[in-house]
């Protein structure tokens, strides 16, 4: 038992240590882009945990796949230390980073995905989309990207508050892991928060992992509408497969994929549903009673006149 725990802990530490993730360097405000200037997104690649990490300075050999809301995939070979993306259209973009190398006969494949919503497009090529007013492109992918052999996929979150656009404390994130297009059923994901909280979530019989974003116990963080914290989920998979990559042969492969996310404090901290229902019902009662008495008063008036005349 001790051995298993030791192996798990060692594995966990080693896995967190080699997790790569994409991070947006500077979030621009809406409507900053001028006519004729393409909207620009700058990202960097970080290695390590959310608390202790370093920015990768050389991205040579890494590949970036950009999937737009129409499912069109672009492939870019990376170099330098930062990633620059110029999205053409308004809508959801999914980025996938792939970095692989052979070390000691093991093929290490490090993957990461990042989604952003582009608020402004290039008008000269996106005006037809603006006319169309496409609204149903999803934040969630329906199927794994064919270019990635291993993929951690996030599905629509489960929540019980009124905001649909973002992630909040208490939301449940369903995750699935795919290897070469096949759903893996006996897997787990590592979950890590910027504040240091960590956990391992195992899959159920159908291969689904449900990650509930934990509630902060820090008093100063409660009820702050603008508070934002990072969350990193990652999955690993080891498989015996042999081959040659970049002139080096390998006998096994180690896959790791991460999804960096941001979340805020739950709106349920500062909203009341009970009071809302009570208000609706109260207004209905008061309005109905008001009408009832008003009608009764109006109906009685002619009768009184009639009896007066008699």
């Amino acid at each position: 038992m001790k051995k298993i725990v030791l192996v798990l802990v060692t594995l966990l530490v080693s896995l967190w240590a080699d997790t790569l993730w994409l991070d947006e360097t500077k979030k621009k405000k809406c409507c900053e882009a001028k006519l004729g200037v393409l909207p620009l997104k700058e990202l960097s690649v970080k290695s390590g945990t959310l608390q202790e990490n370093e920015k990768l300075k050389d991205l040579n050999g890494s590949v970036l796949y950009i999937r737009d809301m129409d499912g069109k995939i672009e492939e870019h070979n990376l170099s330098g230390s930062k990633i620059t993306v110029t999205p053409q259209y308004k809508g959801n973009y999914h980025l996938f980073l792939k970095h692989q190398e052979v070390v000691d006969g093991v093929l290490n494949v490090q993957l990461s995905t990042y989604r952003f919503y582009n608020k402004e497009g290039n008008l000269s090529c996106s005006w037809t989309k603006e006319v169309r007013g496409k609204t149903s492109d999803s934040r969630y992918l329906s199927e794994p990207l064919p270019q990635l052999p291993f993929q951690l996929m996030m599905e629509k979150t489960i929540h019980n508050h009124h905001v649909n656009c973002c992630l909040y404390v208490g939301d449940i994130i369903p995750l699935k892991v795919y290897y070469k297009g096949e759903l893996l059923k006996d897997v787990s994901v590592d979950v890590e928060l910027e504040s240091g909280w960590k956990n391992i979530i195992k899959s159920n019989n159908e291969g689904m992992m449900m990650v509930e974003i934990p509630k902060s116990t820090y008093e100063q963080e409660k009820g702050d509408k603008k508070r934002s914290e990072k969350l990193l989920v990652s999955a690993t998979y080891d498989v015996n497969e042999s081959g040659v990559y970049d002139g080096k042969s390998y006998t096994s492969a180690h896959y790791v994929m991460s999804i960096p996310l941001s979340f805020g404090d739950t709106p349920l901290e500062y909203e009341s549903k009970t009071l809302a229902f009570a208000t609706v019902i109260g207004v209905m009662l008061v309005f109905s009673l008001g009408l009832y008495y008003n009608r009764r008063r109006k109906r009685k008036t002619p009768k009184e006149i009639y009896f007066d005349e008699e």
């Binding site: 809406c30 409507c31 882009a33 006519l35 402004e120 497009g121 008008l123 603006e130 006319v131 007013g133």
Partner: peptide, 20 residues
């Protein structure tokens, strides 16, 4: 949006939306 944004993408998107 800030009014200066209307000379850019936001302004055109607004006109297209109103037209549609």
């Amino acid at each position: 949006h800030p009014l200066e944004g209307f000379v850019g993408f936001a302004g055109y998107a607004f006109l297209i939306s109103l037209g549609m």
